[in-house]
């Protein structure tokens, strides 16, 4: 089983990296770019039997390690 985890900054949390990338894009004449938010994408390979059970465990992984919920949101996608 494979899972994808997306970790993104919460609304209202300043993203200086995103701002720098936006500045670069704007200066490259991509003037239409109004905002850039940078996040993390993780692929996990799992030895898991049940999708439902594994989703619960993935949530726990996100809450405890993969995301810092003070500043980040996460989204999980399970394949297969």
């Amino acid at each position: 089983m494979k899972a994808k985890v997306y970790v993104t900054l919460k609304k209202g949390v300043l993203d200086p990296q995103g701002k720098a990338v936006m500045g670069a894009l704007n200066s490259m004449s991509f003037a239409e770019v109004k905002d850039v938010r940078i996040g993390k994408f993780m692929e996990l390979e799992l030895n898991a039997a049940s999708k439902d059970e594994e989703e619960k465990r993935l949530r726990e992984m996100c809450e405890r390690l993969l995301a810092n919920t003070v500043i980040e949101n996460y989204r999980i996608e399970i394949e297969g």
Partner: peptide, 10 residues
Amino acid sequence: PGVLMRNSGL
């Protein structure tokens, strides 16, 4: 409490 993020000047 809180978190230490990347410096605003990167």
